[in-house]
Design a protein around this nucleic acid. Structure first.
Lengths: 223, 223, 223, 223
DNA sequence: CATGAATGAGAATTCATTCAT
DNA sequence: CATGAATGAATTCTCATTCAT
């Protein structure tokens, strides 16, 4: 069983009930925990992460951490939930009415920003995938798939109206995801080779430039 | 200490001396262990992996496994070493004298094959990156960087001679890596969305087609 | 690695920080552990001792013991530190201004008491020596050597002023140490031969008598 | 159970039967094993010693070592048996007809030589004592006790005939044992303080001189 | 006579979690 | 809201010993 739910923890007064109102300090501590957890889970995965380390990174005792979340898997689930929305948001903005090049460039830019601003979130997502996405399968097969199909339609329409060349939209989306995320997920490799990384603004501009140039114009010289 | 080297275990007559000659049975058992280890490490990373599980997957007792490798980190290192050569091989074949389109297409195809044939190796590599590449940094900064620089020259020459459009070669290489590996590393996502995957030959052909079309011709309609 | 230092264990909120203030319960548990550890280490040495057994003797679970000390070698070091002061204390009391016979007799008596009251401490010290004193070398070469040199001076002065015969002070000190400690360290032998032991008050008086008689008057009949 | 006998090892053709004739190579290997075992057992005691290490020190495989001795405790017992005779030998030479001073000086010298030549044997003996002499109790209570009683008689006769002062012979023997063995058993301490040790001939002469001077003449100045 | 292969019982830690305060 | 104390189930690794060759 990995990343699987554990029994709901007993006790009476935990602050995590459904829509339980939270005090300001609770809110702050939950946020600190989630941030620390993101850092750890993204590096080591669910099994490799240690509650101790999360607590330490969050600047509180392990006991106190467990007062807020009850169990390791609860923390994990909360982090994942936080993550998904942000991960999907950029694609949602793709506007069927906009100019294809502008829209896609904006999308790529947003994804690059995400890699720059939330590299750990990107890595956590990657980690889930590597493990077979045990906690995310339903999201992948549900909302994500639906969204991809919706946006694929947009791309197909653009192609039919001659505004872009006809390309398999799914693979195009995969390409955009892969190329933008790689700057976060494979950062050590990127940095070893280039000496810089997506966190650097100049580098990010250069990456955006190269990517959109390639995606829009391709490699073949114009006749 | 994660993924750090452990001292060679003192006890017993372990068969793993430097260039020690190996008997047939050793060869066989080591291979079984490495294969099982690849499966486990690629899913759970170094810390999340359990020696028990590797032993079970390899069909031997934990003690016997440790007779061959001495420690978890020794296994990990052996798996990584095995992996690197295969991972790098395709790029090495890129021939400066060949036709750019043919060469690059062949490269992409090889990388896709790798994702199809050794998805676990691909994921293990990804996992190392996510963790910050603790065991691989020197390889990244040494041989890998050198190879990338060598092949970047090739791309640059092609551009200078007008055979391809001038594109930042490093980012092009990153794009190829990312897009080909994503089919192995993010397989659950791919499958959730497309219902198929890189292991399927038709899918692989379609992916290759889409990728090379995009990379060579880009999205913009020809004037 | 024997008796070598281990890293402080990462996990949890161990109560053993540098000069961390200790609660009453911590004080009590640490004391129980140290006492049990003394018993085990003194019999079996560092390597031969089992943490399980120490925990059992201390009346607590192994986990709880490790909550207090983190590792076997940490316990060992704590026991040794506790031991050294007590072991050295008697020699410190040797007063240059006092009467040689009274001073030395008092010293011998204190050492015999130590053997009687803390035979396990004596044996632990012996055990460290047998192993080559891996954890104690610096103390031996530092504070202990200094103290011995200081007290050797005292003996030398006594000899120069004619109050005792001139004898190599170092070997005299070794003799006193050896003869007093043997009653604790070689207890089984002593008891097999005499049927009694240093724990017995009459025996102790007899030992003291014999020792001081020998040391002061020697074997040769007075002319 | 420590140092306790384990079940006799099965098999048929081991070379260790009662008076089984031994080939030259067997004889040589047994000797190498016993020597290596002495080194390890003397430092770490029975429990702390590892068969691996003994095998390595003896320059053979663990399997081969166990071919000769069958089990750890068998080796231990063999080493102890070897040891006892040598340890006792010096005392046996004490001649009732000889001159007390000459006889005792010779005895002390022999014991110091033993400490110099076989420090590991001395330490192994000490180790057994520290553990409560589980394997030696019967020897201590039998042959050793008898021998001590015999030689005590000698000392008593000497005292009765006025050749030495009347001193408790047992404690005198203990003193000689303790003081001579300390140079082997507590070698690290001796060396830390003096910078030399019993292995050094000059040091040994000095020790002998100091000891016999003290034992025969004592500390008090002659009137 | 000797070695390589294999194993199971231990032994030291690690780690998530519970409990009391 | 927070911490210290305690625990038991893993988990890695050790070690004496057995088996086959």
């Amino acid at each position: 069983m990995e990343a699987g739910p554990t029994r709901a923890h007993a006790g009476g007064s935990e602050p995590d009930g459904e829509g339980a109102p939270r005090t300001r300090i609770q809110e702050k501590n939950r946020a600190r925990i989630l941030e620390a957890a993101l850092g750890t889970f993204s590096r080591f995965g669910y099994r490799g992460a240690r509650v101790d380390q999360i607590a330490e990174d969050a600047g509180m005792s392990k006991s106190n951490l467990l007062y807020y979340f009850g169990s390791k898997s609860e923390i994990y689930k909360a982090v994942l939930a936080d993550l998904l929305d942000r991960w999907l948001a950029p694609l949602r903005t793709l506007d069927p009415e906009g100019d294809p090049r502008a829209e896609l460039t904006a999308y790529i830019e947003q994804k690059l920003r995400f890699s720059a601003d939330y590299p750990e979130a990107s890595r956590l997502f990657a980690n889930e995938m590597l493990q077979g996405a045990p906690m995310m399968l339903d999201v992948l097969e549900g909302p994500l798939k639906a969204l991809v199909e919706e946006k694929s339609q947009v791309l197909r329409h653009w192609a039919e109206s001659g505004r872009i060349r006809p390309v398999d939209p799914t693979h195009l989306i995969f390409l955009i995801w892969a190329t933008t995320q790689t700057y976060a997920d494979f950062a050590p490799q990127i940095e070893a080779i280039t000496g810089s990384g997506i966190h650097d603004e100049a580098f990010r501009r250069q990456a955006l430039q190269s990517l959109s140039d390639l995606i829009f114009s391709g490699l073949l010289p114009r006749a």
